[in-house]
């Protein structure tokens, strides 16, 4: 099953099992079914609760917050994640604040879906990874889609969290196969952290290097892990959290302790990144056990160009990760 199909099935399942659930967004109705076809079939089956809207990201995100305020569950599709900037006020100043600013905990069951990332030549305003702008907002959780996490389970977790969530979906993943880590590696769930997937060769706690990366990076990291193994005999263990923030580094420690290097890889551009938040937490917990500080792999501090060769030069590639691992292991 493709990741996009798995996500589509998750939304079908959510609407089927929860009569208070809504899916809201621009151009999401059949026969179009959304710009990336993730909402295909939803409006045919659930015409009352799948709402095609005007081009009004702030308005529809506020609308979802209003439904959530009344106890409904609301999923908003932002056509391109870049446009979530238009809904920032509703997410940060209303939905996230409402969870606690009225003095007692108020559940807001709401997910803002953001098709994210580059690699498709859509240019500077349709290719960004804006996760970092939502890190550190009290009451708000940040999740990322992954080929190693069933989307229905992730949606259930987000809606059960009681607070609004922003769900980043790397667009490249939609056409990739679920749970595909190639023929060399195995994957499982990290003991003690059911939302963290783990990809490894044989013994995950004996890898030379641990790479922490969100779902959108899995393909690139696995490709790098393969070349590192075959060309350099370097073993890596990949950890993929579904929830990026709040982030609990504690369950990762047993795996991190055995490694000679730790990297965090993400597609977002450099500066004020999620990775620096993760690195800080790891440093606080095990500074004295680390051979060297956690290394960060980001896209360049740049807009994301449209032309393929220019875009490749800015965005993190598997070769970027490959090189960064070797650099981190250099004595």
């Amino acid at each position: 099953m493709r990741v996009g199909e798995n996500l589509n099935a998750a939304l079908h399942g959510l609407l089927e099992s929860d009569p208070s659930a809504y899916v809201i967004g621009e151009d999401i109705l059949d026969p179009y079914g959304g710009a990336f076809k993730i909402t295909k079939g939803l409006s045919t089956r659930f015409p009352d609760r799948v709402l095609g809207t005007p081009i009004s990201e702030s308005g529809i995100t506020g609308l979802a917050a209003g439904l959530a305020l009344c106890g409904d569950a609301a999923v908003v599709e932002i056509m391109f994640g870049d446009f979530v900037a238009l809904a920032f006020d509703q997410i940060v100043n209303f939905a996230a604040k409402s969870v606690t600013m009225y003095g007692s905990r108020l559940p807001i069951r709401m997910v803002v879906r953001c098709p994210t990332g580059g690699g498709r030549g859509y240019g500077p305003t349709h290719s960004q990874s804006l996760q970092k702008h939502f890190v550190g907002v009290p009451g708000l959780s940040v999740y990322e889609m992954s080929p190693l996490h069933d989307n229905r389970a992730v949606f259930d977790a987000m809606l059960a969290s009681g607070g609004p969530c922003v769900f980043f979906e790397d667009k490249i993943l939609y056409t990739r196969r679920m749970n595909d880590v190639g023929d060399l590696f195995r994957h499982d769930v990290l003991p003690g952290a059911e939302d963290v997937a783990r990809v490894f060769l044989e013994d995950p706690e004996a890898a030379d290097c641990v790479i922490i990366a969100p779902g959108g990076m899995v393909d690139r990291v696995v490709t790098a892990m393969r070349s590192l193994l075959l060309e350099q005999e370097v073993t890596c263990c990949l950890l993929v959290p579904s929830r990026l923030y709040p982030f609990d580094a504690e369950p990762l420690l047993p795996v991190l302790r055995g490694a000679r290097a730790v990297l965090v890889a993400e597609e977002g551009t450099a500066g004020g990144t999620w990775g620096s938040e993760v690195a800080h937490r790891i440093h606080r917990l095990m500074w004295n056990d680390l051979r060297r500080p956690v290394a960060l792999v980001n896209s360049a501090d740049s807009v994301i160009p449209t032309a393929a060769h220019l875009e490749r030069a800015v965005l993190v590639q598997d070769s970027t990760i490959h090189d960064a691992v070797l650099e981190a292991l250099r004595d």
Partner: peptide, 9 residues
């Protein structure tokens, strides 16, 4: 917009 969502509900 929030009130619109409440009105829809």
């Amino acid at each position: 917009p929030v009130a619109a969502g409440v009105a829809l509900h």
